[in-house]
């Protein structure tokens, strides 16, 4: 990929600023992954504060180092989909049930309102939505330990 025809910087309010080929400056630009689960590293749109797409990044790897760091930092600050690594306990097998989990973002508890809030994205990937709408990802069922799988199995 050729050098991108836009520039990114961070302003004093800690927001991304975007300067396109036309030279116009957009503040408060947010990067959005088009396929956050299926293919997070490819297809990232830069969306302006007004909701219009300003630029499309085919692959994060194609960006110059500095720009990629900016985009990745902004993505990290926006994206919140903790990946469940271990299910340490559930309050009950009937819903609503409080789950205690270890995630890649630390340990927490959340309330599962109903079994239908566990969505099967593929054979091995589950998306668990808590009572506040926060999405927890189980990327690979097979990678969970036996205890977690046994608990989880009661809800599937």
């Amino acid at each position: 990929m050729p050098k991108p025809d836009f520039q990114l910087s961070r302003n004093a309010f800690d927001r991304l600023s975007f300067r396109g080929a036309d030279g116009e400056l957009h503040d408060g630009v947010v990067p959005v992954r088009a396929f956050p689960i299926a293919d997070p590293q490819h297809g990232i749109a830069l969306v302006g504060a007004d909701g219009h797409e300003l630029a499309w990044i085919d692959s994060l790897a194609d960006l110059p180092e500095a720009m990629r760091a900016l985009v990745e930092a902004e993505l990290a600050a926006r994206e919140f989909m903790p990946q469940i690594r271990r299910l340490s306990g559930v309050s009950s097998f009937a819903t609503p049930s409080t789950w205690r989990v270890e995630t890649d973002r630390g340990d927490t508890e959340f309330v599962l309102k109903g079994e239908e809030d566990i969505h099967r994205l593929s054979a091995q990937t589950l998306l668990v939505v808590d009572s506040h709408g926060i999405q927890f990802l189980i990327r690979d069922l097979a990678a969970l330990d036996a205890g977690s799988r046994r608990l989880l199995d009661r809800f599937l």
């Binding site: 004093a12 309010f13 800690d14 926006r78 994206e79 808590d130 506040h132 709408g133 926060i134």
Partner: peptide, 25 residues
């Protein structure tokens, strides 16, 4: 708030001073 995460940002006239994030609970 976005995707279940709330943000409070403290700003003065020229820059952001601090920010706090929390889940919607």
């Amino acid at each position: 708030d976005h995707a279940g995460v709330g943000t409070l940002e403290l700003c003065d006239e020229v820059s952001r001073l601090a920010s706090w994030r929390y889940t919607l609970g």
